[in-house]
Design a protein around this nucleic acid. Sequence first.
RNA 1: GGUCCCGUCGUCUAGCGGUUAGGACAUCAGGUUUUCAUCCUGAAGAUCGCGGGUUCGAUUCCCGCCGGGAUCACCA
Length: 486
Amino acid sequence: MNQENQKIVTRFAPSPTGMLHIGGLRTALFSWLWAKKFGGDFIVRLEDTDRDRLVEGASEQILASITALGMDWAYGPDKPGAFGSCVQSHRLMTYQERIEELLANGKAYRDYRTSEELDAMRSQATSEKRAFVYRKSMAKLDGTITDPHVIRIEIPSDKQFIWEDAVKGLQTWNSKDVDDFVAIKADGFPTYHFANVCDDHAMGVSHVIRADEWLASTPKHLWLWEAFGWQAPVYAHVPPVLAPGGKKKLSKRDGAKDVSEYITDGYTPEALMNYLAMLGWNDGTDKEFYSRDELISAFELSRIQKSGAQFDPVKLEWMNGVHIRAMSVDELYSRAGEWWHPAAENFPPEYKKEVLRLNRERLKRFSELSELTWFFFKDPSPTTELRNMLLEETGLEAQKANEFFEKVINVCDESDFSEENLHDQIYNLCEPLQTKPAVLFKLIRISLVGGKNAPGLFETMHALGKETTLRRLHSAVKLLEATPSV
RNA sequence: GGUCCCGUCGUCUAGCGGUUAGGACAUCAGGUUUUCAUCCUGAAGAUCGCGGGUUCGAUUCCCGCCGGGAUCACCA
């Protein structure tokens, strides 16, 4: 197979029977990366030939997930190509034409056997501990064309199917283990096996990258390519993404989220893409952090892992933090959009950017932005809880704490509020007050931010500004005075 | 059961006949810092699934076994 000069075309062919899960998304990603790497086409094709299992809204969700990760397609359900629609239910005519071709040259036959008869034959074989491989000799060939029937593909006997799978390596299958499979169902719709090959050919697909559950049926597909006299594409069967702590495929039951949920949880598309790519793929070096473009150029089908990989939400979060820390403040700002605390609404962009700068390395997901930064936009409420925190965390009596506050307020009044000045002045307070920085700083911090954790104290004070800082310090004094000590 | 695929720290993995079996996440211990986070250093963690071969030498090659997975639909 020479594909040096062949256009690289990959496709992602989900069936709209449910939500797209992480494993499916990763398969789509691998396909997309491979096409992008060679400047080829990535096609999204809807395999909706099972009319009974269609799920309302599933195709929209699948497309939205792919888009959410930043992937685009050359052809898709919304963008037909010269080959026609990317929705299989719209392509029924082609399958009809194709099957006539195989019927005419004797490679396919009509079978009038009913599903019930088939089931009986199968259970018979099972009870006799025999492998059940359907053959033309078992078929019911007599019937009229108007009677319900299926059309099967006859698999030649004594044939070896040998091919090189791009991830699993050399495969050898014997035709005696391959069924005469149904190509056209009684309802006139094609099966996956048939539609899939017809479409891959029609769309010029060069690399079929799909879940490894298809590995066992690849001989059927290969035979179809051969029966039609077409050159088969490269097949790459990728392993599943496993649930954390298990050996089973990640599914919704394991808390697998819809991709859009990760986005609304504040994961960035780049981090999600980076993490997914690294789950079961590496470039042979220690590199783990990739930009989208780096991923595209480094990606290699042959380095996809052969066995399943467990999804690790903890590492995903770490990866997201790495991507966030790598962003410029402007970049961060442009993405922070909806995640600000409502109180931030009317604050100027420059102030918000400063807040982002101070919080960049504490942010792992954008959804944490609000709880991490609300106090930059809103004074802490003078609650009993706050009062207790002030005293418990510092180990001070209310009166003593207020003595400290008094000095701090004096210092702030006189300070030019530069970080340096604040730093020096407040440090100098420790000795006369006979206390440790840890205690004094904690007292100030809690009064200003209403919690134990925040960016550096002087950076925070500087960002907040003199007026706000003093207002909050005074408010803390009042709080300690008002409530009797317990 | 038949056929096929897979098997390195808890997890994701590097390795492609000779390595102190490397990295990352997580864990633990230090350090930096006013807190959290970040950052830095270090530690612990893998008899390379098991047993046979081949070889001077096997995690790497071969065979068997065990374990896990996929597939055997008029579902994809």
